[in-house]
Design a protein around this nucleic acid. Structure first.
Lengths: 327, 327
DNA sequence: AAACGTCTTTACATCGTTGGCACAACGTTG
DNA sequence: CAACGTTGTGCCAACGATGTAAAGACGTTT
């Protein structure tokens, strides 16, 4: 692979002149510029990014830390982040934590300032101590362990959950259950709070089912348990779409009609939710805006070296009403 | 951020000795080792990977190039690759091409040998010329532009498609359509070939519908068009699960029962297919094996510097029979 | 023609790390 | 006690790029 030196020898100029051409420096004699460009083409020169970044003090990478890429929400999110990062000439390095606190912590620590210019983290179980001094700008997504002086981008989970549950209440449902309670996930806590507010406001009683991970099978399990209770719920709000679709599936297997016998709503508006049978009512965060906001924040801190107090950016969301709650 | 030099000063030894400790060199006086380790802890030293890799000639990254991470199949695949790469101390850099040939080409060219140690590419539209001399080991997934001397890992798409279609034939269906024909996607070509073989073997007539991208909406569109034809199909084989679920949705909207009126099968066995209503019969490639095989091949070439003729690794698959084809 | 200012190019140091090698320290051996 | 092998350590160069600053080229002004 050709280096600057090779090109310089071929063009008969110094290494620095080649570097100047490559970097678009203005004052290069046209004659030399041409010869250098010819040599660049002839050798097929590509800058060694490692060396360049070593010198420049930036790496050209940002890290995206998510629990699991196989969860469609995170796949869609990652896609948006990669696209937004590309506009800043950043490549995205993705790490998976499986929602495990130890791994979240390790990844964040190892990120050191040498590997990436910044990081976007979708935390599930980290506690403030874990992210104490990351060394590079870190933006948190979705959840925000409160006492932490880090930027945060997300939707208002409490309000979103309340909105969804109010929608179910407006349908006239009275036994409204929730699926997704979780001991450590921050978003779960917030969504549960929103659910509780709405239920309290309507004077109903809470029906809470936990979920360990947030896959279909967890939703199915929780739904089975709910339907086995003496007082069957007539509506269920799930903390993500996969839980909801797992629940729909179980309702269907039990011979219950959705939404007539039981209305079901999800969260995230993943692509499947619009095409499932029945299609799924869900909270739709503006994922593109989320990705852009997160990348921009990292960029301002990491590259523009701006210094400003920790931001808390709230991204708009919408309630997408579909068949699973429309009798 | 602490460097080797800082640690060396603190420990009162030379930079090289610290380097030796960090790299587990055997012959270091216990006394010095202890002091260095203390200094390492005190400073919270992290190696500068850029510098290390510049020196060592490897980067610690591999690239994964996929069309879109928001497609669940690629999300699941990426998850597997990241996990497999982690076992070789590799981080994974993901680039999206949107299935666009120019971008596939650009990404592969820019990968240069400086940014990544190797690449795993899931091509959609590249032609052999584009990947002529990648400079780093490249493993192709799924599709293999034939005259190319590159490693390839994938399932036997022709046989898989034939298997799926035979399954539909065994159900007694006679008007079996296919959704997903595409002018440039290699896997589409192969799956279509498998479909054609099966149809020919059974003496039936081909019913072919194209798809531009492979999202739900494309499946829905194609299905609508198929159902508008005078002779309605009684079975449809789709080139991925999203197409199939889009098709299921349209069938449902038309008041057709799946599978009684029309059987539908997909491809990829993404997590949703097991929980949709009806659950989806699909071809299930062993994704974990696929990821492992691809990463191992890159590793053998990039790190072990093995030299061997281009491999063509065939990964097993299974036909997952579910409700959408079980009356 | 000397002095000056503007362009243009180059030599050199540097980023943080590791390989190669020389040398120092040490205990063994003849 | 000289020669030796084994350990342990440090110096230097190098990876490929870029910032600095100084030197060279050239035309213009006095």
């Amino acid at each position: 692979m050709a280096t600057l030196k090779d090109v310089a020898v071929l063009a008969g100029v110094s290494v620095k002149t080649v570097s100047n051409v490559v970097n678009g420096y203005e004052f290069v004699k046209p004659e030399n510029r041409r010869r250098v460009e010819d040599a660049l083409n002839a050798t097929g020169y590509r800058p060694n990014l490692g060396a360049r970044n070593l010198r420049r003090g930036r790496t050209g990478f940002i890290a995206l830390v998510v629990p699991e890429l196989s969860i469609p929400y995170f796949g869609e999110l990652a896609g948006g982040i990669i696209a937004a990062a590309a506009e800043h000439d950043w490549s995205v390095l993705i790490e998976q934590t499986q929602g495990d606190r130890a791994r979240e912590r390790k990844v964040i620590t190892d990120l050191g300032p040498h590997m990436v210019d910044g990081a976007i983290v979708s935390p599930q179980a980290v506690v403030p101590d874990d992210i104490a001094t990351p060394g590079v700008p870190v933006v948190l997504l979705g959840e925000h362990p409160l006492p932490l002086p880090l930027d945060h981008v997300g939707i208002d989970n409490v309000t979103a959950a309340r909105t969804a549950v109010h929608h179910l209440i407006d349908l006239g449902r009275t036994r409204i259950a929730v699926i997704g309670q979780h001991p450590t996930r921050g978003t779960a806590t917030q969504r549960l709070a929103g659910y509780r507010q709405a239920i309290a406001e309507a004077g109903l009683t809470e029906i809470v089912a936990p979920a360990l991970r947030y896959h279909h099978s967890d939703g199915a399990l929780a739904m089975t348990e709910l339907l086995d209770r003496p007082e069957r719920p007539d509506a269920v709000f799930c903390f993500n779409d996969m839980l909801a679709l797992g629940a729909v599936r179980v309702a269907h297997d039990r011979g219950l009609r959705v939404p007539d016998d039981i209305a079901i709503a999800g969260f995230d508006n993943t692509e499947h939710s619009a095409y499932s049978v029945p299609s799924l009512t869900t909270i739709a965060p503006d994922k593109a805006a989320l990705a852009r906001a997160a990348v921009d924040l990292v960029h301002r801190r990491a590259i523009d070296k701006e210094d400003f107090p920790p931001q808390d950016v709230s991204i708009p969301f919408a309630l997408e009403v579909r068949e699973s709650t429309t009798p």
